[in-house]
Design a binder for these strands. Structure first.
Lengths: 354, 354
DNA sequence: TTGTATGCGTTATCAG
DNA sequence: CTGATAACGCATACAA
């Protein structure tokens, strides 16, 4: 089935033959050159055991002289490790995940591990398949950036391959979770608007079956309640975390003639969409309506007006996740914690006039 | 050297032992189950030879029954292929490259190949190292998204591993290039502004040692010349392809009291930055100055005002590149061509009043 | 057409 | 501390 989809009929024989001659420096070539056995070379390569200083030197020289580079593929087969970390992201081209991926890459780089990115597209099935692919590739660990896989699936997976997952709080053997405090972030954002004198604050929510979207909704409600303001369901409209849904949300609000002086969007992308919708209707931001986003994407500071948002340090989160998976892979229990949410006040929100 | 950077002292022995029991369904287990030899199974898997229908059925059943999944690592070692394609991108979190990566991913997915992304960060040295890593991983092919590697380096690399590179026009054995027509794109953009009646058109350039940045500059000049307008060096200011440089470019222009009624930015990110700078100085876009970008990033349509830009189909380019490398890997010469640049007129540019 | 034997480059397990 | 040698899981000449 899977095998037939691969086109192998090509006649790449000529090039293939050449390509195998380019880097034929194997470990036993080094061994011979240094006058030792392959095991010795392997040992000093991995630091598996102590070897005589003279032999070590001879081997080091041989390696340098021959330009030997170990073959990760063979190492994988023999040692059961692949020196690669699987990363299931939801959308590799999302501005938010992009930063996280870079963080992962940066952190993994010096360790000799390489990341293997696959996209789950917010679909349980696709994510599942991603995990399968990753495991068939024998990755040494898996980082799951949120997603919709069930907690149980993750736990099961962690039994055979270390897993670190963001966006949830889970505890299990071989599993480490890194949860950003979405609830608190949303609470801070709402509180900020409240402090500015706003009372009618609309909320553009994310997908309902999106765990952190719900947390953000909860934070919004919590701040409202704490301020003694009745939660008005008519002021929250569902979005889908991308620009167009933010735009449509505002149009919906306007169409229904809802009254509001401020909008809190569950992420920056929706805030950007909302911003456009507002200005299309000649509603000035922040003169007529204040706007606050969530995530603080790199580009949000260049929005017009520059967007006030809750900073979610995606890059750092990526680094932390990578660092954690490396620890897990090496048998140590990570203890990292996600940075706390923080408000970045810019120009899209201001004190309610009057 | 490299070996010692890998921490192997951890005591993950227990988990490691388990992990090897999870998917121990090897090819010869299947062979036994089906009552045939391993070679037969292998042949069926790869379509290497014709086998009797009954055996094929037996094997298919065995595969299904045992849930067998071939081990790419072992396949790689034995067959000299890794079923993975290396991709050297410049910045994995760039909005532009993100789309290309998704295209690559989507195209590779059904073929059974998986992409291996590494970032060159616009540095020859880093890119070089990326290539080394990729080759040491025995990727079957490499896609280079522009970058600063010399043509010669690429050609040499292509001798042992098929390469497809974007952003240049190169010909060599095992090498295929996919060049977007940046010159034409820039010409179209400038021409558009010219048609709108603008005469004083500023240009925010990209890095000078960036091949496509130069092409865009050339296109700008070419359109000007064709219209009989003298090229004014004072109207072109260097940028660096990111928002802040666009912002600074405009401030520079304003500071120097240059006169212009329109700006053409060599990419959308700089246009976005320019937009903010303009509005900060109370210059309305497009009422006071028209603005045109390049790339047509997904978010550009949500800018305020929605940005007029030259569409560079990054996603399609990614797909094309992936498709081409697959062909190259299979020994067939690709013939794809990059889509032509196209103007997307939105609201950031308008006819010069008066 | 099908099975056998050998190799792929390392690591790991044993003896020495 | 070191060196043979057997895995690792699969592909593939070579035989049959």
């Amino acid at each position: 089935m899977w095998g037939r989809s691969i086109n192998t009929k090509g006649n790449s024989s000529v090039r293939a033959t050449q390509s195998r001659k380019v880097l034929p420096v194997t470990i036993d070539r080094v061994a011979k050159h240094a006058g030792v056995s392959v095991s010795t070379v392997s040992r000093i390569l991995n630091g598996t055991a102590v070897v005589a200083e003279e032999k070590r030197k001879a081997v080091d020289e041989a390696i340098a002289a021959l330009g030997f580079v170990p073959n990760p593929v063979a190492r994988g087969l023999a040692g059961g490790k692949s020196f690669s970390i699987g990363v299931v992201t939801q959308a590799i081209d999302s501005p938010f995940y992009g930063a996280a991926l870079r963080g992962i890459e940066d952190e993994l780089d010096p360790s000799g591990y390489v990341p293997m990115f696959v996209s789950g597209h917010w679909s349980v099935n696709v994510e599942s398949r991603c995990i399968d692919v990753l495991r068939s590739r024998r990755v040494d660990g898996i980082i799951v950036l949120t997603g919709r896989l069930s907690d149980q699936t993750l736990k099961t997976c962690a039994k055979s391959t270390p897993v670190v997952v963001t966006g949830r709080s889970l505890k299990a053997a071989g599993l480490f979770s890194l949860n950003f405090d979405n609830f608190l972030g949303a609470r801070i954002a709402t509180q900020y608007l409240l402090d500015l004198g706003h009372r009618a604050i609309a909320f553009i929510a994310g997908d309902a079956d999106h765990p952190d979207a719900n947390e953000r909704l909860r934070g919004y409600r919590s701040a409202l309640e704490a301020a003694g303001i009745k939660f008005d369901p008519a002021l929250v409209v569902a979005g889908a975390y991308h620009e167009s849904s933010g735009l449509m949300a505002v149009e919906h609000l306007l169409e229904k003639r809802r009254h509001f002086s401020a909008i809190f969007a569950a992420n920056d992308q929706m805030a950007i969409g909302a911003n456009l919708a507002l200005q299309r209707r000649s509603l000035r931001v922040p003169a007529d309506v204040s706007l606050v986003g969530f995530d603080d994407l790199p580009t949000s500071m260049y929005a017009i007006p520059p967007l006030t948002s809750i900073r979610q340090p995606a890059y750092e989160l990526g680094r932390l996740a990578a660092s954690a998976i490396l620890q897990l892979v090496n048998g140590v229990q990570p203890i990292a914690k996600a940075p706390a949410p923080q408000l970045v006040a810019r120009e899209s929100a201001r004190r309610l006039p009057g």
